[in-house]
Simulated assay, not measured.
Amino acid sequence: MRKFFFDMKDGVPMRDRVGIEFNTNAEAISHCKEIAQDFRNNSLRDDQDLEILVVNENGREIHREFVHREPE
């Protein structure tokens, strides 16, 4: 298993220091989409700049998911 980190960003990045282990990039990206959906459903704010970045254990960004808007 490999560790992936889910950084939040809305102008200022908030780094995930713990991470979660998944077998594949696809599993980590799927988890990111679930996190974004949870924020969309339960957030009291509609921050158009809020995004979640999936970063692998080597520090490489593998996915970026906007929470409250469609990607450009």
Rank of each mutant, 00 (worst) to 15 (best):
H31E: 14
A28M: 12
I52H: 01
A36Y: 02
E27C: 07
E27M: 13
R60C: 06
D47F: 00
N42I: 00
V55L: 04
N42E: 04
E57D: 12
N56M: 00
I35C: 08
D38L: 07
V55M: 05
I52V: 15
A36K: 07
V54Q: 01
Q37P: 05
E51K: 14
K33Q: 15
A36F: 08
E27A: 13
N58K: 15
L44I: 06
D49V: 03
I29Y: 08
H31P: 02
N41K: 14
F39I: 12
D49M: 08
S43H: 01
Q48A: 04
C32A: 15
A26N: 11
R45L: 11
I52M: 10
V54S: 00
S43T: 02
F39C: 12
N42T: 11
D49G: 02
A36S: 12
N42P: 01
G59D: 11
E27G: 07
D38H: 06
K33L: 13
R60V: 14
L44K: 03
R60P: 00
L44E: 06
I52L: 13
Q37T: 09
L44A: 05
G59H: 12
D46W: 04
S30Q: 13
H31Q: 13
S43I: 02
N42M: 02
E34S: 14
N58Q: 10
I29T: 13
G59M: 09
N58Y: 08
D38I: 03
V55N: 02
N42R: 08
N41L: 15
E57Y: 01
R40H: 05
I35R: 10
R40A: 08
V54K: 01
